[in-house]
């Protein structure tokens, strides 16, 4: 992915996260498109690319809600790096894998984020994690499947190409 395309993808994702995602919320649960983008880029670009993009988009999100500046960047850096690392060592493919990967990424992201946000207030952490993070992870995983199917139908498959890159 060239730098310009990546910037456009980041911009579209941030705008979608801010403007579009609230419209598709179900009982207050929304998918996390930004983590989804970090996962997709990390699968292609590897650990350093994933970590750098995670840091960048996390920083941009932090600017929009500066009370937690740094926390978003940290969580997404770790997710980007971990997914990038994982992509070079796993040989599993298919929709279930991507659903699981994206959902786990959202859970990992929220784990780090909520630990920082609640400052180890266990009750609050568990409350938020159970009522918000787990449903959001499932929702984001489903959305990633949907996007994958649409992309495959339109262009031959973003996820397939990602897999090819991984195999290559």
């Amino acid at each position: 992915m060239t730098g310009m395309r990546l910037m456009v993808a980041v911009a579209i994702t941030l705008v979608a996260q801010l403007a579009f995602v609230p419209r598709i919320s179900i009982a207050g649960i929304t998918p996390d498109f930004v983590v989804l983008l970090v996962v997709l880029v990390a699968l292609r670009a590897g650990p350093s690319g994933g970590a750098a993009l995670g840091f960048l988009v996390g920083l941009l999100q932090g600017m929009l809600a500066p009370e937690t500046l740094g926390l978003d960047a940290l969580a997404k850096t770790l997710v980007g790096w971990a997914v990038g690392k994982l992509s070079s060592s796993l040989a599993i493919e298919g929709p279930a894998f991507y659903f699981g990967l994206v959902a786990m990424s959202v859970l990992a992201h929220d784990l780090v984020y909520l630990v920082g946000l609640t400052q180890l207030d266990v009750a609050r952490f568990l409350g938020l994690f159970v009522t918000h993070s787990i449903p959001a992870a499932v929702y984001t995983g489903l959305v990633s499947l949907l996007i994958g199917m649409i992309a495959r139908a339109v262009t031959g498959g973003v996820l397939n190409r990602t897999a090819e890159v991984r195999r290559g």
């Binding site: 590897g46 350093s48 840091f55 500066p66 500046l69 740094g70 926390l71 790096w81």
Partner: peptide, 27 residues
């Protein structure tokens, strides 16, 4: 890879150590 990760983590933690007013102002 590890260098990029370390730099990103350190920068993130450095920002988290700021006062809330500083974070809001700089953000």
């Amino acid at each position: 890879d590890r260098l990029v990760l370390t730099v990103c983590i350190l920068l993130s933690i450095w920002m988290m150590t700021w006062d809330e007013s500083d974070r809001v102002r700089r953000g």
